[in-house]
Design a protein around this nucleic acid. Structure first.
Lengths: 334, 334
DNA sequence: GCCGGTCGTCGAAGCGCTTCGACACTCTCC
DNA sequence: GGAGAGTGTCGAAGCGCTTCGACGACCGGC
């Protein structure tokens, strides 16, 4: 590991073959006899050879690195982000790629830079807004990209996300099945709606449509994330609608506060008020009582995004839009 | 952006100079006349030139990328991690470096791979354990590295972290100044202590020593992260020690539950029980009441880690150990 | 027994950049 | 006015890899 690194020509010499033969053993792009392959592989192990990434990128015009562009803004719940990121890294490794981390701080300049310098072969962007400044840039880039989330105008892009409208609707159905006919949605902080983040709006739309379809009484509210604000929201909601018996919470940071507020207001879950959350499984399981929830399949979304971007790199045609079907896990809160 | 990228020789031709001159304009490693520099810079802008990262890495033996190795394990509070990560990216960009994200999934193999392939110039590792498998590897690597956190045997490594022992002590002092003489520490989940994660233990040591030094009565407990477990812990604590009037909480995920539990147990904060937290500022501010806290200076730690690793890359000598002094912010909870 | 067709391997030409030595100038100073 | 010391620029040699065309060796088919 110390000193100068082993190069392909040292491996070639050690194995008694040409440099190109070693390269072909590694890439598999030409047939190599079993015997030669063995010798080369043995030499590689013996010398501890690792191909130089820069040289490889230069010669092959492929860096085997993809960019992951993360937002880091108010109102985003960070643990979910992290799980996406982790899933993307793991999935990328499975395709023999590494992940370069970009934050939105640098704005579009960062994306342009890593693409133009051939530092990355492709991009995965998270937390896309309805009107996202980065979208026009992606359209003009030669490098393929995949968005996690949907902008307002997704034509010509490749987007993947949980089907939040279906998730909102699924929660309503579940509450309807349980006989609740007066329900409410506590959603993201109002700033998130104002910014036009797609998933928050789509959940709300799914909720509202399903409420109508089932002939329920339902209201959708924004929900801030401090205990005091949550408490007030819940208290006012119960005052306004004494008959309310079902709650859909789509706000990870607030879900604990909602339960605490209900406790303080002497409402038992699920006896007085049933609660369904849209949140990662671990949050739902850790709550007390454990929450019936539509899980946010971070791993699956991340994996799918990487799969799509790899397909595009290989020149395969991929669908513009990939919506993952929500799964409801029933627990003690309904 | 589409089609073949602009190369340095096209820039050179456009500006009417040699390729090497363009390179020297960009790197500043030789003096270039103001006039030539201008012409070259103009050509670069006119053509939209971005140096090819692979070629640059190959020729200069520097990739201008650092690896950020993140753990993704139970008991780590993820938002803090994310803030570290974000700080590292931002700081790295300031040194004209990018950040490659590695998760601990791949274990030491990933570290070895990116180092040996010259994909990265240096490494920053987060959440180091007392007995960390990655540490021996780092010692034999030619690439410089910086750890965020301290292993049991930090000799010969470069480590940076908040001075958690001082943080624990600072909380005790603050409570002592306020006249509390019977206090407790609610720390990390027990699994974290068992794993031997340094920061949790060091906080506890600082707490215990300061308690002794001030002649207080104090107990240090592990603290799980579900509401029910927290509630039981707090309830039992108050039963055992009716005179207890001060609490130090070093567990971000549990801090909200602790406050909720105290509310349910009819203890007013700070009137009956004063609470000091060790957590990021935003968590402390969002709590109700807002918490007096020692903030976890994620940004500062990340920035410092990058500064150290850049110093090492430049061949400068850096201190083995960098401990950041804790800052206490007094808020409504004490 | 000769021809065409794989199969397995080699050598060499880049990929786009950095860096080293060389060289032509222009100053400065005695 | 010439030696010595900078300046500013150039050309060329790599950096370590991939990939293309070439070319023996070997195969089966007529």
């Amino acid at each position: 590991m110390s000193g100068r690194a082993v190069t392909i020509s040292e491996v070639a010499k050690h194995a008694g073959v040409a440099v190109s033969t070693v390269s072909y053993v590694l890439s598999g792009k030409r047939t190599i006899s079993a015997d030669t392959r063995r010798r080369v592989l043995d030499s590689i192990n013996a010398l501890g050879y690792h191909p130089n990434a820069g040289a490889r990128a230069l010669a092959s015009r492929r860096s085997n690195v993809i960019a992951l562009v993360l937002p880091l803004r108010a109102g985003m719940h960070v643990p979910v982000l992290m799980r996406f990121a982790s899933a993307v890294v793991t999935a990328a490794r499975r395709f023999d790629h590494d992940v370069l981390l970009l934050t939105a701080d640098e704005g579009t300049a960062g994306i342009r830079r890593v693409a133009a310098s051939a530092l990355v072969d492709a991009l995965v962007l998270m937390d896309v807004e309805l009107d996202d400044r980065r979208v026009p840039l992606l359209r003009e880039l030669a490098e393929p990209s995949v968005l996690i989330g949907f902008p307002a105008e997704p034509a010509g892009l490749t987007c993947v996300d949980l089907d939040f409208a279906a998730a909102g609707a699924r929660c309503v159905e579940h509450l309807a099945e349980r006989g609740h006919d007066e329900i409410a949605l506590l959603g993201a902080p109002s700033v998130v709606y104002e910014r036009g983040t797609g998933f928050a709006r789509r959940t709300r739309e799914g909720f509202v449509e399903a409420v109508d379809a089932h002939g329920l009484k339902g209201v959708a509210l924004a929900c801030e994330e401090t205990f005091d604000e949550v408490y007030e929201t819940v208290r006012d909601l119960l005052l306004d609608q004494p008959g309310l018996s079902g709650l859909v919470v789509h706000n990870e940071a607030a879900v604990g506060h909602v339960l605490a507020a209900l406790r303080q207001l002497d409402r038992r879950v699920p006896h007085d008020v049933a609660v369904v959350a849209i949140c990662p499984d671990d949050v739902a399981e850790r709550a007390s009582p454990p929450l019936t929830s539509v899980l946010i399949p971070a791993e699956e979304v991340g994996r799918e995004a990487v799969r799509l971007v790899m397909d595009k790199l290989e020149g395969r045609v991929v669908p513009d839009s990939t919506l993952l079907t929500p799964q409801l896990a029933v627990r003690a809160s309904t």
